[in-house]
């Protein structure tokens, strides 16, 4: 139990996927413009990421390892993730068209959101147990969402700012992320696996 809690805190605060590990930067830059879409994206990512870890872990442990097919890891993982994303996309389009519109092209981009691929790969590399892997997926996605939502709040305020021309958009967002990353350093060493 303590180890699970540690995993949660470590991957939300210390080893934050966006701010410390650089996974999922594209959607982080793309959909953090508005709070509403950031929250929508966050929910999609939390769902997809947890599911992805679950499925890929099972697949790896019960299919790839027994048959010595570890070298198929990348191919299978990406296929699982791509299908999952497609599933979420078709569902969302029907259930909430407004949310679908807001997320726009970024839903297909979840496929290429390396955070999701990374969480699947890392769960295997870190040799997590099944439960740990799922918790890890959840924590990592929450960490991603936290960074995304904070950034969305900040960017809504930056909309009103008179940012120098050449720094507008991604440049200032990256610098903000940098300072945010510095701020998160405060949690360094607070929890260790």
């Amino acid at each position: 139990m303590e180890r699970l809690l540690t995993i949660i805190f470590v991957y939300i605060l210390v080893e934050n996927f966006v701010l410390h590990r650089f996974f999922g930067i594209c959607p982080f830059l793309g959909v953090s413009r508005k709070m509403e879409t950031a929250i929508g994206m966050s929910m999609a990512v939390v769902f997809v990421m947890t599911m992805a870890t679950l499925v890929t872990w099972l697949l790896y442990s019960f299919v790839l390892v027994p048959y010595n097919l570890e070298y198929l890891q990348i191919v299978t993982f990406i296929l699982v993730i791509a299908s999952l994303v497609q599933l979420v996309e078709t569902t969302l389009r029907k259930i909430s068209p407004t949310l679908y519109q807001g997320l726009g092209i970024f839903l297909p981009l979840i496929t290429t959101n390396c955070a999701i691929m990374a969480v699947a790969l890392l769960a295997v590399r870190e040799e997590f147990t099944f439960v740990e892997a799922v918790v890890f997926g959840l924590a990592a996605s929450i960490g991603f969402s936290l960074a995304l939502v904070i950034m969305a709040g900040i960017r809504e305020r930056l909309e009103l700012a008179e940012i120098p021309d050449v720094l507008q958009g991604p440049a200032v967002t990256l610098i903000t992320a940098g300072i945010l990353s510095l701020a998160f350093l405060g949690f360094g060493g607070m929890f260790t696996l």
Partner: peptide
């Protein structure tokens, strides 16, 4: 206090304020 009592750094005010700065737009809303 989180950082002082349970973190590895001796002092946490700098990080605490920067983190809260980041949350300010959300708090305001």
């Amino acid at each position: 206090m989180l950082i002082r009592l349970w973190g590895t750094l001796p002092e946490g005010v700098t990080f605490a304020i920067l983190l809260m700065n980041a949350l300010t737009p959300i708090i305001d809303n």
